[in-house]
Write a protein that binds this DNA or RNA. Structure first.
Length: 424
RNA sequence: GGAGAAAUGGCAGAGCUGGUUUAAUGCACUGGUCUUGAAAACCAGCGUGCGAGAAAUCGCACCGGGGGUUCGAAUCCCUCUUUCUCCGCCA
């Protein structure tokens, strides 16, 4: 949620930013400001009436105590009109407040200055290309779904039987590889100074709103309607919401947290060859890193997170590139997002495996996550998060890129976790 | 699932027969005095949001959430949520 005072003070910049995001309903900005003006006027009038009513009530109390019953009753009668006036203003305030809130939550975050113009994924900027030649596999190289069948690593049909399409079942060395990757990613995050969290994987409405999943992406989440809880699409939701409504001391920043969770996404409307195997699934495992920082230090933190993910990709010996997402592809809540894509040599295409974003104050304003600055005033923090890393596609890329005629070779860094060197 | 009790500031904890309560008091925290330094003691400050104002400051709201009664609600009523105790079930 954008900050009202920023919209008011820097309207030109906001409108320009919304254009970069290809946001169409620019009139909303003026509507928001108009509603806020109305809110202020009503609030001011209400305050005056309540001040009058409060002081009169105090006086009535005093008079009763002194036994001046007649005077008290006279005063009581004289302010009887105030009540309906203030009730009227309260109703107005509530309705204007609701309209303001509804309008405000429709505005996406404005992009960082470095975000390139563009409509969709084709316009993303290659921020860091893969420096070497792309790997070329020998003839007969197989896509991961064939390798998985050959070595009995996962079974999609069983997933369908138990649940439905897009819920893979891993088994044998496939299951062990999953577990090894999770442990490896968590250990690497811990080494980088992140505290490990095991959060709930169902969240309430307030949490889903806090990080921006509601009301915008309601259809993307599984909803347990009986209890009105949502299955998390990413650990970002429960972990960032730890600090919802909190005011921390400046010296506590940056707060660095990591957590492994399964992630659930309905992915409504995705079909075809691009979703074969485990390229796109409804349930996958992910280790997420989250940072809550001082506003002036968030872009340094973003760079640190990029470095962290790069190092993971290097240790897994996978070819990757980094994209800077264009205005049309940056998510609703994000100011700047870098995507990591792994090159799948067998499918000969790039697959997104990590998304690292700075949300600036967009989430913290929704969540009211603040710190006390050196003037002892409260100020919104910046929030960031990144996948480090998302498993299903990394799993697929490992199989495809490390396949040899003898089997699938496990990267050196992972062997102490898998406790096998090859899948054959 | 059944029965009962409770929810007050960072924490502890009064107020809860409705009206000088501006939410007592203690601890913690911040600044100061004293001290070579520290501790102790003493003094002062110490919640959040909104509104008005150039500012000092002033006003309004907030005692788990929402609603109600009343001139006036932390206090009375309704409702939801959460916690605790006992019973039942259970990894």
């Amino acid at each position: 949620m954008l900050e009202l005072k920023v919209i008011r003070a820097q309207k030109e910049r906001i409108v320009a930013g919304l254009k970069v995001k290809n946001f169409k309903n620019l009139d909303l900005v003026d509507q928001v400001l108009k509603l806020d003006d109305q809110r202020k006027a009503i609030q001011s009038a209400l305050n005056d009436i309540e001040a009058k009513s409060n002081s009169a009530s105090k006086e009535i109390g005093k008079l009763f105590k002194q036994g001046k019953r007649d005077e008290a009753n006279a005063l009581r009668a004289s302010i009887s009109g105030l009540k309906s006036q203030s009730q009227d203003l309260k109703d107005q305030l509530k309705s204007v407040g609701t309209n303001l809130e509804d309008a405000l939550v429709q505005l996406p975050n404005i992009p960082h200055d470095s975000v390139p113009l563009g409509k969709g994924e084709d316009d993303n900027e290659v921020f860091q290309a893969w420096g070497e030649d792309l790997p070329i596999l020998e003839d007969g190289a197989k896509p991961h779904w064939e390798l998985a069948e050959q070595y009995n690593l996962f079974d999609l049909k069983l997933g369908v039987k138990i649940t439905g399409a897009g819920f893979p079942l891993y088994r044998g060395k496939g299951a062990k590889l999953q577990r090894a990757l999770i442990a490896f990613f968590l250990d690497e995050a811990e080494k980088a100074g992140y505290e490990e969290i095991v959060p709930p994987i169902l969240v309430n409405e307030a949490s889903a709103f806090g990080t921006g999943q509601l009301p915008d992406k309601e259809g993307q989440m599984y909803h347990a309607t009986v209890d009105n809880l949502y299955l998390i699409p990413t650990a970002e939701v429960p972990i960032t919401n730890i600090y919802r409504g909190e005011i921390v001391e400046e010296k506590q920043l940056p707060i660095k947290l990591t957590g492994y969770t399964p992630c659930f996404r309905r992915e409504a409307g995705s079909y075809g060859a691009h979703v074969r195997g485990i390229n796109r699934v409804h349930q996958f495992d992910k280790v997420e890193i989250v940072q809550i920082t001082h506003p002036e230090k968030s872009y340094q933190a973003l760079e640190d997170m990029l470095e962290h993910v790069k190092q993971l990709m290097d240790k897994l010996e996978l070819p990757y590139r980094i994209l800077r997402l264009c205005g049309g592809d940056v998510s609703f809540a994000s100011a700047l997002t870098f995507d990591f894509e792994v090159y799948s040599a067998a499918q000969k295409r790039w697959l997104e495996v990590s998304s690292v974003s700075n949300f600036e104050t967009f989430q913290s304003n929704r969540m009211k996550t603040r710190f006390r600055n050196d003037k002892r005033k409260t100020e919104l923090c910046h929030t960031l998060n990144g996948s480090a890393l998302a498993l299903a596609r990394i799993f697929a890329a490992l199989l495809e890129n490390h396949q040899t005629p003898e089997g699938i070779v496990i990267p050196e860094a992972l062997r102490s976790y898998t406790r096998f060197d090859i899948i054959d």
